[in-house]
């Protein structure tokens, strides 16, 4: 039995190590859920509110909590998705969450809110034009991925609108300038040549945040992930919060 805390080692790092060693067993996150792993692949996952792929994404978003891994032989089944695909999608959602966590939204059309966007039902009581998305996540208990999806849907249906305050606009102008997509890809390639794979990964995540469906950025990110996973694991390689 292996035990630890997600503050010290990320779930994504654990899954990568298990994939490399083709281990089988149950990876439990206290208060979160459980992943069934067969020969290094995730074949099943469950949390209180989700199963399968959604449960994996929900668990990968967690940064706190103890985990335990018990070697066993879960029922064999087809992988939910290749490990790298799971990790890349989780990283993309992570990036998206970091971008939107500070947004504030308000209700624009109350009459259509529940009929057009029923997934907002659990949030509507807390949306007041002052609370950030992150605060809404704490209050509602929704997973961050579900919350971002619900808010995006609400904005696209013009039921919600983002509140842009003078303060938030000032913060945006102080932050890193919006880099051209091409520049981000070129930056990533340069960092790979310099051996800075983590830096390359960050550039590519930013590029993907601008163009989520872009084939080139996705391929580049998969390549970086493959290079990272083939690199020997040292304490400095592990992600910490």
């Amino acid at each position: 039995m292996i035990r630890g805390n997600l503050r010290d080692v990320a779930l994504s790092s654990l899954l990568q190590a298990m994939h490399v060693d083709s281990v089988s067993g149950y990876l439990r996150v206290e208060g979160g859920g459980v992943l069934h792993i067969v020969d290094g692949e995730v074949v099943e996952a469950s949390t209180a509110g989700a199963k399968g792929y959604d449960a994996v994404m929900s668990l990968l978003a967690r940064r706190r909590g103890s985990f335990s891994f018990e070697r066993a032989t879960p029922a064999a089944s087809a992988p939910l998705a290749p490990i790298m695909n799971l990790l890349l999608e989780s990283a993309r959602l992570d990036d998206e969450w970091r971008r939107v966590a500070g947004y504030v939204v308000r209700v624009v059309d109350e009459t259509r809110l529940l009929s057009d966007v029923p997934c907002l039902a659990s949030l509507v009581q807390w949306i007041d034009g002052r609370r950030t998305i992150e605060e809404l996540a704490h209050l509602s208990g929704d997973s961050t991925t579900d919350l971002v999806a619900s808010v995006r849907l609400g904005i696209s249906r013009r039921v919600l609108a983002r509140v842009r305050s003078a303060e938030s606009e000032a913060t945006q102008s102080e932050s890193e300038p919006d880099r051209d997509y091409d520049e981000l890809l070129a930056c990533a390639r340069e960092k790979i040549r310099d051996g800075d794979l983590e830096g390359a990964s960050r550039c590519l995540h930013r590029a993907l945040a601008r163009r989520p469906e872009d084939r080139i950025a996705r391929q580049n990110l998969r390549r970086v992930a493959a290079l990272l996973s083939s690199r020997p694991q040292t304490p400095s390689n592990q992600r910490s919060e």
């Binding site: 990533a188 390639r189 080139i216 996705r218 391929q219 390549r223």
Partner: peptide, 15 residues
């Protein structure tokens, strides 16, 4: 380094 810079690949060809 095996990074795609640009492509004109059909959808069924793996990048």
């Amino acid at each position: 380094d095996g990074l795609m810079i640009a492509s004109a690949l059909p959808a069924d060809v793996e990048d």
